[in-house]
């Protein structure tokens, strides 16, 4: 067990190393635009650009630049400085993290509370009208782009701009420390919008897994020994059917913590994703690079947590 966890840890570290290298290549080697010129801003003198080039080490060979970058990253989690306002990308991201966490955690609760029950109901009565309606709705939700759902939600339900004024609209987010009630109200539409496609996806997964599981021999045994159907499903069926879903949930949360960029953009929530969006409109490469790397960290971390949890949860996983 110990060896297994150590191996997973080492793999995660290696993964982070490679991920940092690839981001470096994508953002510092691929672009044909000169970083020193971008950093200097408009109307820069050649002398200034030359000075910046030396300060940033851009005149050094590629591998020395990467080493410098990696050292800053490993020692201080240094993500560089924005071209746009020269702020530290790390502190900009951290200051926006609470909004992203609020959005992600709330949406996660919503999609689990909708997705799992819908999937279970559909699996218990497969090919009935109810199942077909639910799965048809799920497919529509998967097919809808999240920003279109967001615009539709704002158009229908948002205070001031909607057909009915039920919920707070775009740009109404306040931190929870400031006013918990306003915080909650402002996030209702974003939570449901972000959760829609995930809920649909999880409903389809749950249904498929549960139907497969219910065809297993041990389910027949459970029924044959006279167990109530609710217990057969609840105790024997769901347990096996939900394990892969827990794994996926962990990774999806990790993915979203790196910024739910589209939802944050539509609802104007000042999170990490919104920061990435603003960085793109400003052609602010260090900020985009920082958010990509930050998002990758969360995914690698979530993968690690899930792998380790799995070893505890699933007795079939061997740690050899």
């Amino acid at each position: 067990m110990g060896a297994y966890i150590v191996r997973r840890f080492l793999w995660a570290i290696l993964l982070l190393l490679v991920v940092s290298f690839l981001t470096f290549v994508i953002f510092d080697v691929f672009p044909s635009a000169d970083p020193a010129v971008l950093r200097a801003g408009r109307n820069a003198t050649p002398a200034l650009i030359h000075q910046i080039r030396i300060n940033l080490g851009l005149n050094k060979p590629f591998y020395i630049q990467y080493w410098r970058y990696l050292k800053g990253l490993a020692l201080h989690f240094d993500l560089g400085y924005s071209y746009y306002n020269s702020e530290s990308v790390r502190s900009e991201i951290f200051s926006r993290l609470p909004a992203t966490i609020s959005l992600t955690v709330g949406a996660f609760i919503v999609w689990m509370l909708i997705g799992l029950p819908v999937g279970i109901v559909s699996a218990i009565r497969p090919r009935t009208l109810l199942d077909r309606t639910l799965m048809g709705g799920a497919l529509v939700a998967i097919s809808a782009p999240v920003y279109f759902i967001g615009l539709l939600a704002l158009f229908l339900f948002a205070n001031g701009t909607g057909l009915v004024n039920w919920f707070d609209g775009a740009g109404s987010y306040v931190p929870i420390s400031q006013s918990p009630a306003t915080w909650f109200g402002s996030l209702i539409l974003p939570w449901f919008t972000l959760a829609a496609a995930f809920a649909a996806f999880y409903a389809r997964m749950t249904r498929g897994n549960l139907i497969d599981t219910m065809g297993e021999d041990y389910i027949r045994t459970a029924r044959a020994k006279g167990l109530r159907e609710s217990l057969v499903i609840g105790k024997h069926g769901l347990r096996a059917a939900l394990t892969p879903i827990v794994t996926m949930a962990g990774m999806d949360v990790g993915l979203l913590l790196g910024g739910a960029i589209l939802t944050e953009t539509v609802f104007n929530i000042p999170g990490v994703g919104r920061y990435a969006y603003e960085a793109i409109t400003n052609s602010d490469l260090p900020a985009i690079q920082g958010t990509v790397l930050f998002g990758a960290f969360f995914i690698v971390f979530a993968n690690l947590v899930v792998d380790i949890l799995y070893a505890f949860l699933d007795p079939r996983v061997t740690y050899g």
Binding site: F30, S32, I288, G295
Partner: peptide
């Protein structure tokens, strides 16, 4: 291990500056 949308965004925005990317 990369966030898909962010990676695509990163590649696309790195290549949207100047004369594109990879020379």
């Amino acid at each position: 291990a990369f966030p898909i949308l962010l990676l695509a965004l990163g590649i696309a925005s790195a290549c949207s500056l100047g004369n594109g990317c990879v020379a």
